[in-house]
């Protein structure tokens, strides 16, 4: 009896061995190694674990927040850019996904599966390939500029336009005296309050367009789980369409809503592929994001310690915001 128990242990672990080994070596081990590298100023030559590599303690982290230099400026700009990006992408893709799901789920319409596939297709294509297409659409005098021209709208030079949209909405080129002074972490208040640049808006449009389909499917699955009798009961009670949505459908979608917001937030804080292909952080650093900055710092500036430190700070931002979001959603339920 005891022998067969041990044999089952061996068999079980043999089955999972490849997965355990690969995830261990290429996921767990890298995180531990990166923790060490983030405490050094390794330049990519030789092994970071040899004795000659300078140990700098927490300086790579401190530099991002306290020292007044280019590293901090770049990091803070990237955080600002990404924060505006998340603040627009997440609500927009969630509303669009829910809207599309509601239309596709409507019982009156035919050809649902065609439309469902059409909305979902962008989500499965290569992010690099689709970025190339949008680069063309948003190019100077490209497809979008021509389309806007039909409506007599003069489109901007998307990827060369570093102006922030909040600045544009205010109609101001230069900061008012009150905001010109230095704000937190070395950027002026005026810089913090720029909003996403016009160039970033093009990337936002691409991402909302590609990710809405995935989230639409999640809403659709949840909508199909809502019993028809519940809707019918609401109709009998004299509830209008908006009331049915507001008081019957929406509360039942709550768990899915939480999932979509959380996954959306986690995903959009890591935006990288589109930045790499479309803008590389330009123009004037307004599409720089922490994920891209960390890549650039390590692989182009050969400052692996600083690049790794940015990765860990980004990781921390994501964890803290996820916990915060969870807490807000829980409180509102009570």
């Amino acid at each position: 009896m005891r022998r067969s128990r041990a044999r089952e242990d061996v068999t079980g672990w043999l089955f999972v061995a490849p997965v355990v080994a690969i995830l261990g070596v290429f996921l767990l081990l890298p995180i531990l190694m990166a923790m060490w590298v983030s405490l050094t100023s390794w330049n990519g030559q030789g092994s970071p674990f040899k004795s000659g590599v300078p140990f700098v303690g927490l300086e790579n982290y401190g530099r991002l927040f306290t020292r007044d230099d280019l590293a901090r400026e770049n990091f803070m700009i990237s955080v600002r850019n990404n924060a505006y990006y998340v603040a627009i992408v997440v609500p927009l893709q969630t509303v669009l996904a829910l809207g599309l799901a509601l239309i596709v789920n409507s019982r009156l319409l035919k050809g649902k599966s065609f439309f469902r596939s059409a909305f979902y297709f962008p989500s499965v294509t290569s992010s690099v390939a689709i970025s190339v297409v949008f680069l063309f659409i948003f190019s100077n005098s490209g497809a979008l500029t021509q389309l806007l021209g039909f409506f007599d709208i003069q489109g901007p030079q998307w990827f060369s336009d570093a102006r922030g949209v909040i600045h544009l909405l205010l109609g101001m080129d230069t900061p008012p005296a009150a905001l010109a002074g230095a704000g937190p972490f070395g950027l002026s208040w005026w810089e913090w309050l720029s909003g996403p640049s016009v160039a970033m808006c093009a990337i936002i449009a691409l991402v909302v367009w590609t990710t809405s389909g995935t989230f639409m499917l999640m809403f659709l699955a949840a909508l199909q789980d809502i019993p028809v009798t519940l809707e019918e009961a609401a109709v009998l009670d004299g509830a209008g369409r908006w009331q049915r949505f507001r008081y019957v459908t929406l509360p039942l979608l709550r768990p899915t809503m939480f999932l979509v917001l959380t996954l959306g937030m986690i995903g959009s804080w890591q935006v990288f592929d589109q930045i790499y292909v479309m803008s590389q952080g330009a123009p004037a650093k307004t599409t720089l994001t922490p994920a891209f900055l960390s890549y650039r710092t390590a692989f182009r500036d050969f400052d692996y310690g600083a690049g790794t430190a940015i990765s860990f700070v980004l990781f921390l931002i994501i964890v803290l915001l996820t916990l915060f979001q969870r807490r807000v959603m829980r409180e509102r339920r009570v």
């Binding site: 290429f26 890298p30 190694m33 960390s294 690049g307 980004l314 994501i318």
Partner: peptide, 19 residues
């Protein structure tokens, strides 16, 4: 493991491959 954001793992993966 599924919860770890892949976007923060670029450099760490390079470190292991390099090592």
């Amino acid at each position: 493991v599924m919860a770890v954001p892949g976007g923060v793992l670029f450099i760490p993966k390079f470190l292991v491959l390099n090592q």
